[in-house]
Simulated assay, not measured.
Amino acid sequence: MKPSFITLDGIDGSGKSTHLATIENWFAERNLPVLFTREPGGTPLGESLRSLLLNPATHVGLRSETLLMFAARQQHLDDVILPALAKGIHVVSDRFTDATFAYQGGGRGIPAADIAVLENWVQGSLRPDLTFILDVPLETSFARVSQSREKDRFEQEEAAFFARVRQSYLDRAAADPQRCRVIDSNRDKNQVRAEIENILQQHFKAV
Protein backbone atom coordinates (compact mmCIF):
# COMPACT_ATOMS: atom_id res chain seq x y z
CA MET A 1 0.00 0.00 0.00
CA LYS A 2 1.34 3.42 -0.96
CA PRO A 3 1.66 5.56 2.17
CA SER A 4 -0.78 8.44 2.44
CA PHE A 5 -0.08 11.97 3.58
CA ILE A 6 -3.17 13.21 5.41
CA THR A 7 -3.71 16.65 6.90
CA LEU A 8 -6.27 18.07 9.29
CA ASP A 9 -7.03 21.78 9.19
CA GLY A 10 -9.58 24.43 10.09
CA ILE A 11 -9.99 27.58 12.16
CA ASP A 12 -9.10 27.56 15.84
CA GLY A 13 -11.72 25.81 17.94
CA SER A 14 -12.92 23.64 15.07
CA GLY A 15 -12.24 20.39 16.93
CA LYS A 16 -8.92 19.34 15.47
CA SER A 17 -7.55 17.94 18.72
CA THR A 18 -10.67 15.87 19.28
CA HIS A 19 -10.69 14.40 15.81
CA LEU A 20 -6.96 13.83 15.57
CA ALA A 21 -7.77 11.26 18.24
CA THR A 22 -10.51 9.88 15.95
CA ILE A 23 -7.97 9.42 13.16
CA GLU A 24 -5.39 7.97 15.55
CA ASN A 25 -7.87 5.39 16.80
CA TRP A 26 -8.86 4.49 13.23
CA PHE A 27 -5.27 3.73 12.29
CA ALA A 28 -4.61 1.85 15.55
CA GLU A 29 -7.63 -0.41 15.07
CA ARG A 30 -6.21 -1.47 11.69
CA ASN A 31 -2.58 -1.75 12.81
CA LEU A 32 -1.49 0.59 10.04
CA PRO A 33 1.92 2.27 10.44
CA VAL A 34 1.36 5.97 10.97
CA LEU A 35 3.21 9.01 12.24
CA PHE A 36 1.35 11.95 13.77
CA THR A 37 2.91 15.40 13.69
CA ARG A 38 1.96 19.09 13.63
CA GLU A 39 2.68 22.49 12.11
CA PRO A 40 4.31 24.71 12.86
CA GLY A 41 6.42 22.20 14.75
CA GLY A 42 7.35 18.58 14.34
CA THR A 43 11.10 19.23 14.70
CA PRO A 44 13.22 21.06 17.29
CA LEU A 45 13.51 24.04 14.93
CA GLY A 46 9.81 23.92 14.11
CA GLU A 47 8.80 23.80 17.76
CA SER A 48 11.04 26.79 18.53
CA LEU A 49 9.48 28.74 15.68
CA ARG A 50 6.02 27.66 16.88
CA SER A 51 6.69 29.11 20.33
CA LEU A 52 7.88 32.32 18.75
CA LEU A 53 5.00 32.66 16.30
CA LEU A 54 2.25 31.87 18.81
CA ASN A 55 3.63 34.10 21.56
CA PRO A 56 1.39 37.20 21.89
CA ALA A 57 4.48 39.26 22.74
CA THR A 58 6.18 38.49 19.41
CA HIS A 59 6.33 41.29 16.88
CA VAL A 60 6.89 39.95 13.35
CA GLY A 61 6.06 41.39 9.95
CA LEU A 62 3.60 39.74 7.58
CA ARG A 63 6.23 38.48 5.13
CA SER A 64 8.53 37.37 7.92
CA GLU A 65 5.68 35.41 9.49
CA THR A 66 4.99 33.65 6.20
CA LEU A 67 8.66 32.88 5.61
CA LEU A 68 9.05 31.50 9.13
CA MET A 69 6.07 29.19 8.54
CA PHE A 70 7.77 27.83 5.44
CA ALA A 71 11.15 27.57 7.18
CA ALA A 72 9.52 25.36 9.80
CA ARG A 73 7.76 23.42 7.02
CA GLN A 74 10.98 22.80 5.09
CA GLN A 75 12.66 21.31 8.16
CA HIS A 76 9.51 19.32 8.91
CA LEU A 77 9.50 17.84 5.42
CA ASP A 78 13.22 17.08 5.42
CA ASP A 79 13.42 15.53 8.87
CA VAL A 80 9.99 13.98 9.45
CA ILE A 81 7.43 13.80 6.67
CA LEU A 82 9.47 12.71 3.66
CA PRO A 83 11.57 10.11 5.55
CA ALA A 84 8.41 8.54 7.00
CA LEU A 85 6.67 8.36 3.63
CA ALA A 86 9.83 6.87 2.09
CA LYS A 87 9.66 4.09 4.70
CA GLY A 88 6.03 3.32 3.86
CA ILE A 89 4.65 5.02 6.95
CA HIS A 90 1.45 7.05 6.65
CA VAL A 91 1.73 10.61 7.92
CA VAL A 92 -1.02 12.67 9.55
CA SER A 93 -0.24 16.34 10.18
CA ASP A 94 -2.21 18.76 12.33
CA ARG A 95 -2.13 21.67 9.85
CA PHE A 96 -0.08 22.07 6.68
CA THR A 97 0.12 24.55 3.81
CA ASP A 98 -3.65 25.09 3.61
CA ALA A 99 -3.22 26.88 6.94
CA THR A 100 -0.71 29.28 5.41
CA PHE A 101 -3.06 30.11 2.55
CA ALA A 102 -5.86 30.61 5.10
CA TYR A 103 -4.10 32.49 7.91
CA GLN A 104 -1.29 34.37 6.16
CA GLY A 105 -3.21 34.62 2.87
CA GLY A 106 -6.86 35.06 3.78
CA GLY A 107 -6.30 36.44 7.25
CA ARG A 108 -3.21 38.62 6.79
CA GLY A 109 -3.64 39.45 3.12
CA ILE A 110 -0.43 37.95 1.71
CA PRO A 111 -1.15 37.30 -2.00
CA ALA A 112 -1.97 33.67 -2.73
CA ALA A 113 0.41 33.77 -5.70
CA ASP A 114 3.32 34.60 -3.38
CA ILE A 115 2.42 31.74 -1.04
CA ALA A 116 2.14 29.39 -4.04
CA VAL A 117 5.71 30.28 -5.06
CA LEU A 118 6.96 29.25 -1.61
CA GLU A 119 4.77 26.15 -1.65
CA ASN A 120 6.30 24.99 -4.92
CA TRP A 121 9.85 25.84 -3.81
CA VAL A 122 9.60 24.06 -0.45
CA GLN A 123 7.35 21.12 -1.34
CA GLY A 124 8.06 20.48 -4.99
CA SER A 125 5.30 18.22 -6.23
CA LEU A 126 4.31 16.98 -2.76
CA ARG A 127 0.72 17.70 -1.77
CA PRO A 128 -1.47 15.97 0.83
CA ASP A 129 -3.41 12.99 -0.48
CA LEU A 130 -6.36 13.83 1.75
CA THR A 131 -7.21 16.92 3.78
CA PHE A 132 -9.96 17.20 6.37
CA ILE A 133 -11.12 20.77 6.87
CA LEU A 134 -13.16 21.02 10.04
CA ASP A 135 -15.63 23.86 9.78
CA VAL A 136 -17.61 25.63 12.50
CA PRO A 137 -19.34 29.02 12.73
CA LEU A 138 -17.19 31.78 14.19
CA GLU A 139 -19.36 31.93 17.31
CA THR A 140 -18.63 28.27 18.03
CA SER A 141 -14.92 28.77 17.40
CA PHE A 142 -14.70 31.73 19.78
CA ALA A 143 -16.67 29.97 22.51
CA ARG A 144 -14.52 26.84 22.35
CA VAL A 145 -11.23 28.74 22.40
CA SER A 146 -12.32 30.96 25.29
CA GLN A 147 -13.35 27.95 27.35
CA SER A 148 -10.29 25.81 26.66
CA ARG A 149 -7.14 27.95 26.97
CA GLU A 150 -5.45 31.30 27.09
CA LYS A 151 -5.46 32.82 23.61
CA ASP A 152 -2.28 32.69 21.55
CA ARG A 153 -1.06 35.39 19.14
CA PHE A 154 -3.38 34.28 16.33
CA GLU A 155 -6.37 33.58 18.53
CA GLN A 156 -6.29 37.17 19.75
CA GLU A 157 -7.18 38.47 16.29
CA GLU A 158 -10.59 40.07 15.66
CA ALA A 159 -13.64 38.36 14.20
CA ALA A 160 -13.09 39.80 10.71
CA PHE A 161 -9.70 38.10 10.57
CA PHE A 162 -11.22 34.70 11.32
CA ALA A 163 -14.07 35.27 8.90
CA ARG A 164 -11.45 35.69 6.15
CA VAL A 165 -9.53 32.64 7.35
CA ARG A 166 -12.64 30.49 7.37
CA GLN A 167 -13.67 31.65 3.91
CA SER A 168 -10.20 30.94 2.58
CA TYR A 169 -10.44 27.35 3.81
CA LEU A 170 -13.83 26.93 2.17
CA ASP A 171 -12.58 28.44 -1.08
CA ARG A 172 -9.59 26.09 -1.17
CA ALA A 173 -11.83 23.12 -0.52
CA ALA A 174 -14.19 24.17 -3.32
CA ALA A 175 -11.23 24.47 -5.71
CA ASP A 176 -9.88 21.00 -4.84
CA PRO A 177 -12.84 18.84 -3.73
CA GLN A 178 -11.12 15.52 -4.41
CA ARG A 179 -8.42 16.26 -1.83
CA CYS A 180 -10.25 18.53 0.61
CA ARG A 181 -13.23 17.26 2.57
CA VAL A 182 -15.13 19.88 4.52
CA ILE A 183 -16.54 18.43 7.73
CA ASP A 184 -19.30 20.22 9.62
CA SER A 185 -17.77 20.06 13.08
CA ASN A 186 -20.63 21.94 14.72
CA ARG A 187 -22.43 18.66 15.39
CA ASP A 188 -22.43 15.83 17.87
CA LYS A 189 -18.89 14.41 18.12
CA ASN A 190 -20.11 10.95 17.21
CA GLN A 191 -21.58 12.21 13.94
CA VAL A 192 -18.33 13.96 13.05
CA ARG A 193 -16.30 10.90 13.98
CA ALA A 194 -18.47 8.64 11.84
CA GLU A 195 -18.06 10.91 8.80
CA ILE A 196 -14.28 11.08 9.20
CA GLU A 197 -14.03 7.31 9.59
CA ASN A 198 -16.14 6.76 6.49
CA ILE A 199 -13.97 9.09 4.43
CA LEU A 200 -10.82 7.34 5.65
CA GLN A 201 -12.36 3.98 4.75
CA GLN A 202 -13.18 5.15 1.24
CA HIS A 203 -9.77 6.75 0.79
CA PHE A 204 -7.88 3.58 1.64
CA LYS A 205 -10.11 1.48 -0.57
CA ALA A 206 -9.08 3.65 -3.50
CA VAL A 207 -5.31 3.70 -2.95
Rank of each mutant, 00 (worst) to 15 (best):
G46S: 05
R50E: 12
E39F: 05
D129A: 15
R38H: 03
T66A: 15
A112G: 12
R95W: 08
L118W: 12
V117G: 12
R108V: 05
Q123E: 15
A71R: 06
S93M: 08
V92R: 04
L134C: 10
M69Q: 13
D135A: 15
L82V: 04
R127M: 13
I81N: 01
S51F: 07
N120C: 15
G105V: 05
A84K: 05
A99D: 09
L138Y: 02
A57P: 01
L52H: 12
N120S: 15
L49R: 01
L53A: 13
P128G: 09
G42M: 04
T131M: 06
L138I: 05
P83Q: 07
F142L: 14
S146L: 12
A116Y: 09
W121G: 01
E139T: 09
E47C: 02
V60S: 00
Q147R: 10
S48V: 14
L54T: 13
L130T: 08
H76I: 03
Q147A: 10
A71C: 04
A112F: 02
E119N: 09
V122P: 02
D129Q: 14
L134I: 06
P40K: 07
A84T: 04
V92P: 00
P40A: 00
A102T: 01
L130D: 12
Q74E: 08
L77C: 06
L126I: 13
R95L: 12
S64W: 00
E65F: 08
E65M: 08
G109I: 03
R127K: 14
G61Q: 07
E47H: 04
D78A: 11
Q104M: 02
H90M: 03
R73D: 04
N120K: 15
R63S: 10
E139D: 07
T66F: 02
